[in-house]
């Protein structure tokens, strides 16, 4: 794909479209918007293919990171009224902080992905909701607290406790 070979992009599309489309639908809940995001994701992957570093993670992780970012961007523009300023506390989509720390992404195996999904389902309801709002809607802790009508300290604790549980499940 980095060589500008259309067949390579087609192969990547065929291999990863279900994961990319599933994540776009998970965030946006709208088929038209999800299809537009898929288009943006593969367009970005095509133009930035030379920047992809295989040592930092798998292709699918790279595509999914772009998908989350583009989908949340679109979700926010859909939420914002055309004649209004961004909502209070709204910030640009926060890229997950791997590059800043020089941390290498671990390649997630199918088994560990399934273990993570299962652990997420098993979290106490309110921890799961807080994590999903932050992660799949790109809300900050303040916005999650507003959405759930809970004190910010409670939300902070729930997200942290939930993440630590997930980390334990992933490492087990």
């Amino acid at each position: 794909m980095a060589e500008g070979e259309p067949d390579a992009l087609a192969a990547a599309y065929d291999r990863h479209i279900r994961a990319v489309y599933g994540l776009a639908m998970r965030v946006l809940q709208d088929q038209g918007d999800a299809e537009d995001v898929v288009q943006e994701v593969f367009s970005q992957a095509w133009t930035q293919a030379k920047q992809y570093d295989a040592t930092r993670g798998s292709v699918v992780s790279w595509l999914l990171t772009i998908t989350r970012s583009r989908a949340i961007d679109r979700l926010r523009s859909r939420r914002a009224r055309p004649d209004s300023a961004p909502a209070s506390g709204e910030v640009a989509v926060v890229e997950l902080p791997d590059s800043a720390l020089g941390a290498e992404n671990e390649v997630l195996t199918a088994e560990s992905a399934a273990r993570l999904r299962s652990a997420l389902s098993a979290l106490p309801l309110l921890e799961r909701v807080a994590i999903e709002l932050a992660y799949f809607e790109g809300l900050t802790q303040t916005q999650v607290a507003e959405r759930l009508e809970q004190p910010i300290g409670t939300v902070k604790t729930r997200i942290r406790t939930g993440l630590l549980t997930l980390r334990e499940a992933l490492n087990s």
Partner: peptide
């Protein structure tokens, strides 16, 4: 750093769908 595999792994948390 210890939490990044979890947050990156969550992108795989959505159910794959047929486009």
């Amino acid at each position: 750093k210890s939490l990044l595999p979890v947050t990156h792994g969550l992108t795989h948390g959505a159910l794959p769908l047929e486009a």
